[in-house]
Design a protein around this nucleic acid. Structure first.
Lengths: 160, 160
DNA sequence: ATATGTAAGTTGACCTGTCAACTATATTTG
DNA sequence: CAAATATAGTTGACAGGTCAACTTACATAT
């Protein structure tokens, strides 16, 4: 199709396809990530829900129970400015409540409100369905291998 | 450390750690991706080089030989506005040359200039070294499993 | 031949993420 | 305890990514 035209136009130079790039792990990851994010954002958008970042924060707070901004930053490796602003927005929506930590006045302890929990629950089904659809395309060993590989790389990043 | 304080402050509620989130594939991928991008950008920055996006475009054009904007968009899943602007910048730096496609006047055929190739070559060593350091932390089967997993997910994204 | 539809690329408006500076509070050390 | 150092969180400035509209050119079907 396109390639024929291109090749003929330039005298049949050998076309090195992106298969070469495919060997390069970080490229593959970047492309995959772009696609997954776009898909997730589309699902959330279709539900009239929050941004992907807000969804992740909703999930993080839900998972961690009570937490603080900097714990989220450490665990998720998000930028603290970004998290600060996103949390402000989420408090504006009534999803998150911050109360001062009596033991450390720099801290605010974050928790989901019941509205936040409701919203999280509402979105969880479709998001899980999406995840399950992806997971289904992998065999058990493939899934395990993928997660193991991710863990190994992250461990390598922790060293130096 | 932190957790003790937090727990005692709120009455030893069980702390569900992010280990729970770790099961969620897309979270793991997102976090990994964040860290890898930050590392790559740091390496490029240290070399006085281009942005990560420009580096990827440099590599893509180098790999594809001659190509077009929309082919890059299709293969890499970048936004075409983003690519258009990045290419303008790279032409300004003299790394990329665009010439009209005689067969299709909408198209511009992109190629690296010799300065572009030089720049790509200069950065390739350190970037490969980084990649090799990461790859070294994985066994052969782990690497293969990781790439297979990525491919399987991308295949699943192609279906629906 | 012309109308209709689709692809390539550019641009502007907007949104999100990133970096650095800053305030306020804790912690550590001499 | 005072001084120095480190951490929590906010903010402003900016770079970068995203979305949609638009122009031009090609393709297809009457």
């Amino acid at each position: 199709m396109l390639d024929e035209k291109r090749n003929s136009a330039r005298g049949n130079a050998p076309v090195r396809r992106l298969a070469d790039l495919d060997g390069v792990l970080t490229f593959r990851l970047a492309r995959l990530q772009n696609r997954l994010n776009a898909q997730a954002a589309a699902v959330l958008g279709g539900l009239g829900g929050p941004s992907l970042t807000q969804w992740r924060l909703l999930t993080a707070i839900h998972t961690l129970g009570e937490t603080t901004l900097s714990e989220i930053v450490r665990e998720l490796r998000f930028d603290k400015g970004q998290v600060s602003r996103a949390l402000t927005a989420m408090m504006g929506r009534g999803w998150v409540l911050a109360r001062p930590d009596p033991d450390d006045q720099r801290r605010q302890i974050l928790a989901l409100t019941s509205a936040g929990i409701t919203e999280h629950t509402r979105l969880l089904g479709p998001m899980r369905a999406r995840q399950a659809a992806l997971a289904k395309s992998l065999s058990g060993p493939e899934q395990a291998g993928l997660l193991a590989g991710i863990s190994a790389i992250e461990a390598a990043l922790d060293d130096p």
